[in-house]
Write a protein that binds this DNA or RNA. Structure first.
Length: 562
RNA sequence: GCGCCUGUAGCUCAGGGGAUAGAGCGUUGGUCUCCGGAACCAAAGGCCGCAGGUUCGAAUCCUGCCAGGCGCACCA
């Protein structure tokens, strides 16, 4: 019970401080120290400057006019009326009228204890309130190996999903397989041509066919498995068969690559199943009933203009074939029908022109347009030793995601992909990623974890780990700094979920590692003083727990030795 | 032409209305009798693309311009 109270006070410190300020305002008004005025919600924020304490509020600045007092004077009055609280060790008025709060060492010690009790669930919350979220990402065409850009979305999507799970969302990872349309046909005919060619037949390679070497690899796989039997078939028959077998091969390959990256989807949704069912027709009928469909120029149109779009869009072409957009609306309707509260799609930035259109469709389906959220990801520029890696789609000359993961390893790939905000292009240097040096942030963070393991091994040998920890002995600046960093975690995690920014985690991991390393060089863990040793071992363990939590969410390993 | 993203230290980037704009790398100079030196500390380095506006306060929000990237299909 007591432990519970501590944990709650810790996580809600922000709320708690805000309440103290509110109480101060109320009692000042009651006492007549302030004139009656409407008190707005008290905002607490993290000062940028360390010297300004742990938390600050601008309430005196925002309310000065209403209170008819200069900001600093108002701030002073609030401080004078502030109730005493054990978690606060200092309050001061600063600058134009900020009120700065410093948290007490006792409060910080309770943070360490909270991590002791909660372990790896420290920082988890019910922020999402059980919101059902569908996260769709990667969604590559199954016509060839994935490129490095797909890898970035895989890492971002997967970690975002982890973050959502940790913050009380009910999340589903979904991959929309774009296995329908002309490119599938081109793919099949390309494989069929290479197949025949490899078996010595005279064939003309399709003009717009895929010329990448991987097409030959797929053909070779078919040959080694099924032999040359398909050669006797007509080109059409062969292509029809390959459209299936080659497709299955590629899809299996995609799943394997993603799995190697630690990314596993809950749902693989085939676009083809939409076309093969009556879903598109049903969706269009549904929209027609709602008045958003009309026929013109032989085609069926969606009234996108009704939702502020520049122009209406074709759903059924003149030739009777539905467009990609039509299938996509049916797909999103399917997701909505499955009962998700929120759909988040991660798309390449080159699809940004499509976002508003899709949101309009969601609206037309009778849902708020914000039920669909699109994260647009910028490109990955592959570098090697500072030089861009040349890639050509036309000749099929490229570095695949597979090769990248193979060469630099899953940990570095994931971590480096997650270091940047999704809306900035990312330079990925293969040489840097492989480097086991201080230039490589992945190793910096993992090293902190391994170093703690090493300390704990040493401590066990010295049999210093057995004592119960009294954290009130931790009062050195490096110790308190480390604890402050640990205490930040719940906010960081919630922020990553709220702003859909997994890069908060890599950043935090680096800062945490840095706080630990600084502590380590200043404070000896295993000493003659048994009580202090026990306390520091406890602290080091909590730091390690935090590193584990973050690395796990990032999908990066936390090695005991390296 | 219209739209989206980006422009912050030499380089790569954080910063989602707050105080003296931060981190990593690089540069320069330091720190090891002891738990992992893949570490730590310090210094130098900035008209936050430019110009206006909004307000107590702007790198952040709005408008215009400049530069780079990407889109503007009965393609997917």
């Amino acid at each position: 019970m007591a432990v519970n109270a501590i944990i709650i006070s810790m996580i809600d410190i922000r709320v708690k401080l805000a309440r103290l300020v509110e109480e101060a305002l109320k009692s000042a008004i009651a006492k007549g120290a302030l004139s009656q005025f409407e008190v707005p919600e008290v905002q607490m924020e993290r000062p940028r400057e360390k010297a300004h304490g742990d938390w600050a509020t601008n309430i005196a600045l925002t309310s000065a006019a209403r209170a008819k007092l200069p900001p600093r004077k108002l701030a002073e009055t609030i401080v004078e009326n502030l109730p005493v609280d054990a978690s606060v060790s200092g309050v001061e008025v600063a600058g134009p009228g900020f009120i700065n709060f410093r948290l007490s060492n006792a409060w910080l010690h309770e943070v360490v204890r909270a991590v002791d009790v909660e372990g790896e669930s420290f920082g988890r919350s019910n922020f999402g309130g059980g919101l059902k979220v569908n996260l769709e990402f990667v969604s590559a065409n199954p016509v060839g190996p994935m490129h490095v850009g797909h890898g970035r979305w895989a890492a971002v999507g997967d970690t975002l999903a982890n973050v959502f799970s940790a913050t009380g969302h009910d999340v589903t990872r979904e991959f929309y397989i774009n296995d329908y349309g002309s490119q599938m046909n081109i793919f099949a005919s390309s494989v069929a041509a290479r197949y025949a060619e490899l078996l010595g037949a005279e064939v003309e390679f399709p003009e717009n066919g895929y010329r990448g070497e991987y097409i030959r690899d797929i053909a070779r796989e078919i040959i080694s498995r099924d032999g040359d039997g398909y050669l006797s078939l007509s080109t059409e028959e062969r292509e029809a068969i390959f459209k299936e077998t080659a497709y299955r091969q590629v899809l299996t390959h995609i799943k394997k690559t993603l799995h190697t990256m630690g990314v596993d989807f809950d749902i693989w949704f085939s676009e083809r199943t939409i076309h093969e069912s009556t879903e598109i027709k049903k969706t269009i009928d549904f929209l027609r009933k709602r008045g958003y469909i009309y026929e013109a120029e032989g085609a069926t149109w969606f009234k996108a203009k009704a939702f502020g779009e520049e122009k209406d869009r074709v759903l059924i072409r003149e030739n009777g074939e539905p467009t990609y957009f039509a299938a996509d609306i049916a797909y999103h309707k399917d997701k909505l029908d499955r009962g998700y509260d929120l759909m988040i799609d991660i798309w390449g930035a080159d699809h940004h022109g499509y976002v508003a259109r899709m949101k309009a469709a969601v609206q037309a389906l009778g849902h708020p347009r914000d039920k669909l959220e699109v994260i647009l990801g910028q490109l990955v520029n592959l570098m090697r030793g500072g030089e861009p890696v040349r890639m050509s789609k036309r000749t099929g000359e490229m570095v695949t995601l597979d090769e990248l993961v193979d060469e630099v390893g899953r940990d570095a790939v994931r971590f480096l992909f997650l270091m940047r905000s999704t809306d900035t292009a990312l330079d990925f240097d293969i040489e840097l990623a492989k480097e086991k040096s201080n230039e490589n942030p992945v190793y910096y963070v993992q090293y902190a974890h391994a170093r703690i393991s090493s300390i704990l091994r040493y401590a066990a040998e010295e049999s210093a780990a057995a004592n119960k920890s009294d954290y009130s002995l931790l009062n050195e600046a490096p110790e308190l700094d480390l604890i402050r960093k640990i205490a930040e975690w719940p906010e960081v995690l919630e922020g990553a979920a709220r702003i859909r920014s997994p890069h908060f985690l890599t950043r935090y991991a680096h800062e945490l590692a840095s706080s630990f390393h600084y502590f380590y060089t200043r404070c000896r863990v295993v000493t003659e003083d048994a009580a202090l040793t026990a306390a520091r071992i406890g602290l080091v363990k909590t730091a390690q727990t935090l590193l584990r939590i973050v690395l796990k969410l990032l999908g990066v390993s936390a090695p005991e030795r390296m």
